[in-house]
């Protein structure tokens, strides 16, 4: 169990430290597979069909389908590298450790049900926080979609670690969320691409009229 948690934490650090979206997507895929295994391993002694469904669907969606979709988007946009993130990769790693300490503190101080695992909860909180942090600190829209996914993974893991009794309720909602999220983000990505020949999110300010007037013409030509 803890081994899975450690691997998931490490995968997050890898995303924080990597500059290539392609690698990050692969890591998220691996993360999804681990997350799919998580509920199955967690209740190995009394497995029910529900848990099997949750696990397998998680594995398929998070580990295979969504990464594949994103890989597709990546190929079409042709982004190689996240060049200049708002927070550098080294600093991101250090902040990642701080976030881990923070989520450990939160997990320990939360009023958890008796059968909840604090290590898993800490890991889940960490995933959520890393997702949030990535969303704030990266420029490329593809990385932001990825960050959203990491955050969703965290919510999923939180559900698994706290209540194994009603996981599919949590899970159903989450799957929907993901769908909507990816749909929106993908849409956004293509629109952005068409408007600006660019997927940097700070270029989005140029969609505002005010900005366009004040900025020099042909800056993005």
């Amino acid at each position: 169990m803890n081994a899975l948690a450690v691997l998931l934490i490490l995968s997050c650090l890898l995303i924080l430290g990597s500059s290539r979206p392609r690698v990050a997507i692969q890591v998220v895929a691996v993360q999804g597979i681990f997350l799919g295994l998580l509920p199955i391993l967690r209740s190995w002694e009394h497995l029910t069909a529900g848990i099997w469904i949750v696990g397998i669907s998680g594995l398929v969606f998070k580990g295979i389908l969504l990464p594949w979709l994103m890989q597709n988007v990546l190929q079409r946009t042709g982004i190689q590298k996240e060049t200049a993130p708002y927070v550098s990769f080294g600093t991101s790693l250090l902040l990642g450790i701080v976030l881990l300490a923070l989520s450990a503190w939160i997990a320990v101080n939360l009023q958890l049900p008796a059968d909840a695992s604090p290590v898993l909860t800490a890991m889940a909180m960490f995933l959520v926080l890393v997702g949030l942090f990535l969303m704030m600190s990266r420029r490329k829209a593809i990385m932001q979609t990825l960050a959203y996914l990491v955050m969703e993974n965290g919510v999923y893991a939180l559900g698994v670690s706290i209540s194994l009794e009603f996981p599919y309720l949590v899970e159903l909602g989450i799957l929907l969320d993901i769908f909507v999220g990816v749909f929106l983000m993908g849409n956004l990505l293509f629109h952005l691409d068409r408007e600006l020949q660019h997927t940097d999110v700070d270029k989005m300010t140029e969609l505002s009229d005010l900005q366009t007037i004040s900025s020099e013409p042909g800056r993005d030509a």
Binding site: N2, A5, V6, I9, L10, L13, L93, G96, I97, L100, A101, A104, A107, V108, P118, V119, A122
Partner: peptide, 13 residues
């Protein structure tokens, strides 16, 4: 960071 993760997990455990 590896060692620190181990430390944090140990603490949480």
């Amino acid at each position: 960071a590896f060692s620190l993760i181990a430390l944090i997990i140990k603490l949480v455990e």
